[in-house]
């Protein structure tokens, strides 16, 4: 309240400033101050992964990071991966494989997978399972999620090729 201070960072390519108390988490700042409600909170204690956002390329739990720690960082949320009208290759693969049911865990799984495949577009099934095991989904049983991520790898390889050329 009285101790609220401004924090500046970039979200999905655009500069943003939030004025928040020191105890405000990054997830709460994104959701409540910037109304980026695609990032969800399933536990608020760092276990479920629903709140995962990408900070400077790394998947982090928005409920465990304070907004103040994001000063000067570059953040990507699910809203930055693609829009309902223009879904990314990863998102399209999720739709094709029915890799979501209630959709509550989905944002955190997409951001986790996006960070992984950006770094490791050749990740094998075991590696994908290992990384996704930090995200809880109570609906799908994970099988279609793994299948979707496996299929989406190709799109990230293409991006790497383009970058290399």
């Amino acid at each position: 309240m009285t101790s609220a201070r401004p924090v500046h960072f970039t979200v999905n390519g655009a500069a943003a400033t939030v004025t928040v108390e020191p105890r405000t988490t990054l997830a709460d700042a994104l959701r409540n101050e910037l109304r980026l409600t695609g990032t969800h909170l399933g536990c608020e204690h760092g276990v479920c992964g629903a709140c995962t956002v990408i900070v400077d390329g790394a998947a982090v739990r928005g409920c465990l990071v304070l907004a103040a720690q994001a000063e000067g960082r570059e953040i990507t949320t699910v809203e930055g991966l693609g829009s309902a009208a223009h879904l990314s290759a990863l998102q399209l693969a999720f739709r094709k494989h029915h890799a979501l049911q209630c959709g509550f865990c989905t944002a955190g799984i997409l951001t986790t997978a996006h960070a992984l495949l950006t770094e490791e577009p050749h990740a094998d099934e075991d590696r994908i399972r290992e990384v996704i095991s930090g995200n809880l989904c109570r609906c799908t049983g994970y099988l279609p999620i793994i299948a979707a991520i496996m299929e989406a790898r190709i799109a990230y390889r293409d991006v790497q090729c383009e970058a290399a050329q």
Binding site: L36, G38, H40, V78, S83, A84, R95, G103, F104
Partner: peptide
């Protein structure tokens, strides 16, 4: 068929209880 609800969940534009303000 692919699900009609998926585009909104995949793009983060679902509307859950805590999203209400």
């Amino acid at each position: 068929v692919e699900r009609m609800e998926d585009a909104r969940f995949l793009s983060g534009s679902g509307n859950f209880a805590d999203d209400l303000a």
